[in-house]
Simulated scan of single mutants.
Amino acid sequence: MRRPSARRITALAAAGLLLPALAACGSDDSGAGAENAENEDSTLVIYSGRNEKLVKPLLGELEKAVGAKVEVRYGDSAELAAQILEEGRRTKAGLFFSQDAGALGALSKEGVLRKLPPATLDKVDKAYRGSDGDWVGLSGRVRVLAYNPDEVREDKLPDSVLDVVKPEWKDKVGFAPTNASFQAFVTGMRVLEGDDATRTWLKGLKANGAKAYANNLAVLDAVESGEASLGLVNHYYWYERVAEKGEDKVAAQLHFLPGKDPGALINVAGAGILEDTGQGEAAQKALDFLLSKRAQTYFADETKEYPLAAGVTSSVKDLPPFASLESPDIDLGRLESLQQTLTMLQEQGLV
């Protein structure tokens, strides 16, 4: 994954609500709401932070589901959140489909998302939806440790991500510091453990010779080859590789951390409906479709993520049941402070 550009840093700052004036500027146009009202549900515009290749087949089914033309604009979740704030009431977006909870939390904090009906919210456990009831998780991914059994015995694996900075793991850990999922995990650690403890851990990670890679797949490759004994990744990369190659062709194994450890964070992809865009009815239908058995099964089968809607379970072989995961208790909306995380990573020379 590319290093953060000036454009991305600006976007992260906006998504972190360091530029709240943008939304206020956009809301000065009193004619925007009237214009949107005239176009009520004629077209649903989705700003999608999820990869086009990944979700296009599913989103292609939406026009039939919502009974309106659907236009999807793809991009980075943080950049799209920043764009929505900048556009204010002039935004074309009716539905924001985010790769992570942090960008949704940023928009929620700014008050630009519509409150969702209880019937929608109640489909998902409250831990995986916005605390203000204005966004809902659609699929979940858990942080795990990938490990090479030829390099480390299972009974010697750490029970906390905090332990990977200990001397026994010197030069043996791989991670992807410029990857959004790692940055969201560090943000979660800041929320759970505090900034001082997180900064100390990052310093320890660097001092202990942890090896930086471009993305999660590169980390998994390093573990597979024995270049790294442990790798900090999301669970679904391993399951996608197993589905592609067969488990007997994949050297790495996964360790799901116990005890509500920060390294067992469950982040979500989710969606929220924008206020005052004249697309509310179509956006609600789209959101309900994304929570339907059809869409939830797609997330489970195609992306190897956990479906979050009640009554839908994953059929992925050997994937631990969602209820068995010992993830930390955290308000996922608080992952919006991504800019502070990026600054901390830059201060430690990790990005």
Rank of each mutant, 00 (worst) to 15 (best):
P258V: 08
A251C: 04
T277R: 10
G209T: 11
H255Q: 14
L162A: 08
T178W: 14
A286H: 15
T297R: 03
A214S: 12
A127G: 13
E168W: 12
E244I: 05
A212E: 03
L290T: 03
S314Q: 02
L12P: 01
L350H: 15
V124K: 01
L145G: 00
T343G: 06
G349L: 04
L162I: 10
N208Q: 04
K126D: 14
V66T: 11
R141L: 07
A15D: 11
S225Y: 08
V351Y: 02
L335T: 10
F175M: 08
S5R: 14
L12A: 07
T91C: 07
T200E: 09
V152S: 00
E40Q: 10
G67S: 09
M189W: 06
G105K: 07
L113R: 11
I273N: 06
R73H: 15
P167I: 12
L54Y: 04
S229V: 05
Q284E: 13
E40I: 08
L95D: 11
V136Y: 12
E38Y: 14
W201C: 08
A197W: 01
A93W: 02
D28F: 13
E244P: 13
D125G: 10
E302K: 07
E305A: 06
L287W: 00
G209P: 12
V191I: 09
K109L: 09
R334Y: 11
A68H: 00
V70D: 01
D196V: 09
A282D: 10
T303G: 05
Y47F: 14
V136D: 10
Q296V: 13
G94C: 08
R153V: 00
R153Q: 06
L291M: 09
S108I: 09
K206I: 12
L291I: 05
G209A: 15
A197Y: 09
L325M: 12
Q348W: 10
P321V: 14
Y298S: 08
D329M: 08
T187M: 07
A13L: 15
F97A: 00
P258M: 13
Y47I: 04
A11T: 11
G204L: 12
A323W: 14
G75A: 05
A103S: 11
V164Y: 01
A127D: 11
S98P: 06
